[in-house]
């Protein structure tokens, strides 16, 4: 009797332990990629998810301009910075819009009027992808979606940009 009891409990113990270890490992696997994705963002910003991109709101016009900024991670000088950039302008409703420059086809960086043949459009050098000024992809060019948009807000007259969202939600 007591032998059996002991065996059962030993088995149970083993079961618990194995589940425990398995669960722990799974949690580790789940957490680390997420943390890798989130950490730079968390470390970078003084106030929430938004970063100061070094542009005064009053300087934003109806002509898209490129802003570049970096998100810091403090461990050595090189592995430590993530580059970000955006095209910022004021649309016809006087709203500030900041596009992600990452082409929705395969991810090259697009430029406003990057090709002389296509004035007033964003141009992707990789496969001639194009977007209108409002970020919508030009039909018949490789991209199938509009450019993504940054969340944005104004603090003390400066432009702060946050997470990237698909165009529709913006």
């Amino acid at each position: 009797m007591s032998d059996e009891k002991q065996q059962v409990s030993r088995r149970q113990f083993l079961n618990y332990t194995l589940t425990g270890v398995g669960g722990f490992m799974a949690a580790g696997l789940l957490i680390s990629p997420v943390r890798m994705a989130i950490d730079p963002v968390l470390k970078s910003n003084d106030g929430g998810d938004f970063a100061n991109v070094g542009l005064e709101v009053s300087e934003i016009t109806s002509d898209p301009q490129r802003v570049d900024w970096t998100i810091d991670q403090v461990d050595g000088w090189y592995e430590s910075e993530v580059n970000r950039s955006a095209w910022v302008y004021r649309n016809e409703n006087d709203e500030i819009v900041a596009f992600s420059p990452v082409c929705k086809h395969l991810g090259c960086v697009v430029s406003w009027e990057g090709n002389d043949d296509y004035p007033e459009q964003y141009y992707c050098p990789c496969h001639d992808g194009r977007y209108y000024k409002n970020g919508v992809n030009v039909p018949g060019t490789p991209p199938l979606q509009p450019l993504d948009v940054y969340e944005q807000e104004e603090r003390d007259g400066m432009l702060f940009l946050g997470n990237i969202k698909p165009h529709e939600e913006a």
């Binding site: 090189y78 580059n83 082409c103 086809h105 395969l106 991810g107 090259c108 960086v109 992707c124 050098p125 990789c126 496969h127």
Partner: peptide, 18 residues
């Protein structure tokens, strides 16, 4: 070597689709 690695990564970021 470090600088080249960094540089190559930036170049890739600009043109990754091709």
């Amino acid at each position: 070597f470090d600088v080249l690695t960094l540089f190559a990564r930036e170049l890739e970021q600009e043109l990754m689709g091709r």
